[in-house]
Design a binder for these strands. Structure first.
Lengths: 66, 66
DNA sequence: ACAATATGACAAATATACTTTACATTTAGA
DNA sequence: TCTAAATGTAAAGTATATTTGTCATATTGT
C-alpha cells in the first residue's frame, strides 16, 4: 500500500506533530505511516479523511504486493 | 466505527467465506468485522473497496466514540 | 423433517499497529 | 553560523488485528 499523506499534510501546512495531535496518535505513528513502515487502521484512515476533507481512496492506494 | 459490509455483501450475493477468499483473509475475520468486534487494516478496507466497487468512506464511518 | 450450508462466536497463538523514550540528522529562521 | 524546530529512526513494551481450530445455532433446499 502507498500513501500521499506527506503531500496532504503539506497542503494543510502542518507538522507531523500537529497532524498527530489532531487525530490523537503519536508523532512517530504519523512518521511511520508516511515512511510506509506500517499499515494504519481504518479508523485512523477515516480520521485523516476527515481532516484532509478527501475520501480515503484519494490518499491510500493498493500496490501490486497487496 | 460502524460499517455496512453485510449489506454490500448481500448486494453481491456472496457468503462470508467467499468474500474472505476474494480478499485473502479468514472467514472469521469477515465475521468479526461485520459484528464490529474489531477494526480492520486500511489494506483490507481498500480490498473491500475494490470488490464492492465503492470508496471506503461509503461503507466505513466514524462514530462518536472514535 | 432432514441434510447441507451459512453464520455467530470463543479461545489460544501469532503478527503487527501504536506508544513512549530517546537520540541523530535535517531544515528554517535570526 | 547558531539555535530551535522538524524529521527520521530504533528499541522495548502494550494493545489489538488476524489465524486456526472448534462448536453451536440458524438458514435453506429437498
Amino acid at each position: 500500500m502507498q500513501n500521499t499523506i506527506k503531500v496532504e499534510r503539506a497542503i494543510l501546512g502542518i507538522t507531523q506533530d500537529e497532524l498527530a495531535k489532531k487525530i490523537g496518535v503519536s508523532r512517530q505513528t504519523i512518521n511511520s505511516i508516511e515512511a510506509n513502515r506500517y499499515v494504519p487502521s481504518t479508523v485512523l484512515a477515516l480520521k485523516l479523511s476527515a481532516i484532509f476533507n478527501k475520501p480515503v481512496n484519494d490518499f491510500f492506494r493498493l500496490t501490486d504486493q497487496d
